[in-house]
Amino acid sequence: MSVLVETKNLKKYFSVEAGVLHAVDDVSIQIREGETFGIVGESGCGKSTLGKTIIRLQEATSGEVLYKGENIHALKRRKMKELRRDLQIIFQDPYSSLNPRMNVLQIITEPMVIAGLSGREAVEKAKHLMEVVGLAARLEGVFPHELDGGRRQRIGIARALSVDPTFIVCDEPVSALDVSIQAQILNLMMDLQEQRNLTYLFITHNLAVVRLISDQIGVMYLGQCVEIAPTDELFERPLHPYTKALLASVPVADLSMRHRQPEVIRGEISSPVNPIPGCRFAPRCPYVTPLCTEGDIPLKDMGGGHSVACTLY
């Protein structure tokens, strides 16, 4: 399948009081059409910033984002506005990402009106979308605060779908939800992908969720993408010490792992402000060598679409 979205050496730095914060540091990924690319990592690793920079909700510091071969960060304003219809986002927090003063129908129609649909067309389509995402028609006039988290997230999904996008950044869309509701939303998102040939960038810290929904996965640590692999390959043959530690840290919901002493990695994530050169995981890594902090470590292709940035390989 063809590549729909590609980042090339994408960087996003923020100037903060203490120095330069490297939120996204030299990330190059390829997202194929109709597939889901999962991004996993812990808080502060730059997952959300990557998602926002990919659809240009934030300007990149350097690097390119190619959508259908065109660098969207070089587009003029008007062209970019047109392209926004193709590139949508679903946010993590269904409590704060919806305008509390707009009712369900208004929230879903707004993007369509901005995209140039007439009011009547937009309302008709919004009603259809409510049905698609499983919102009862009687909820049209209801405001977000009257709804539970699962329904609010359905509004967020309907709003993203309203302009018929091809690519959707899903930024922790189920993290704020209870497990039974989370399962409903995940099923809905997988169905929609199949019906509409959507391409997802799925950002999450939940490894079980990313395994379920992704075709390929990129593991991020402090702004860098340390490992990229097809889903099953990553879970069965993790290479980077951080990926291994991450997988070993998740409490598994069955008895086989019951009395296993988890391999706890020591230490905590260091600061992304003025980071040390080389591998950011080096201070916590059990296999660290002087080589790790000497210079940048590029992703190395290990075959089968699996690449890793580590001096061990």
Partner: peptide, 11 residues
């Protein structure tokens, strides 16, 4: 907490 930190705290 993040998973690697969660593992530390649970242990």
């Amino acid at each position: 907490l993040d998973v690697t930190i969660q593992a530390q705290v649970l242990a």
